[in-house]
């Protein structure tokens, strides 16, 4: 298990009820984080993007401990 810190914004922060949390995942991979969000918070991850160290990640982005992981989603308001 590896410990990573996830930061939430906008509506996702509201749905998770927190702005940041540290979680332990078996494999720190992007699909694993998506799965965590779906199973823990019943989030529909279709519109969600993950940024690693301030850069948008792809499914294959390699993660390591202490990476800054931000969970982004589109905002609607204007």
């Amino acid at each position: 298990m590896t410990e990573i810190t996830l930061t939430y914004y906008g509506e996702v922060a509201e749905k998770t009820g927190k702005e940041q949390e540290t979680v332990q995942l078996e494999n720190i991979e992007i699909p694993e984080i998506m799965k965590y969000l779906e199973s823990t918070y019943a989030l529909n991850t279709k519109g969600i993007k993950i940024a690693v160290n301030h850069e948008l990640a792809t499914q294959d982005t390699q993660l390591k401990a202490n990476d800054e992981i931000a969970i982004l989603s589109p905002f609607a308001g204007g």
Partner: peptide, 15 residues
């Protein structure tokens, strides 16, 4: 940035 439209997001009217 956001390839697929998200499900339902709140606008200023609701949020």
């Amino acid at each position: 940035l956001y390839p697929e439209p998200a499900s339902v997001t709140q606008s200023c009217d609701t949020a």
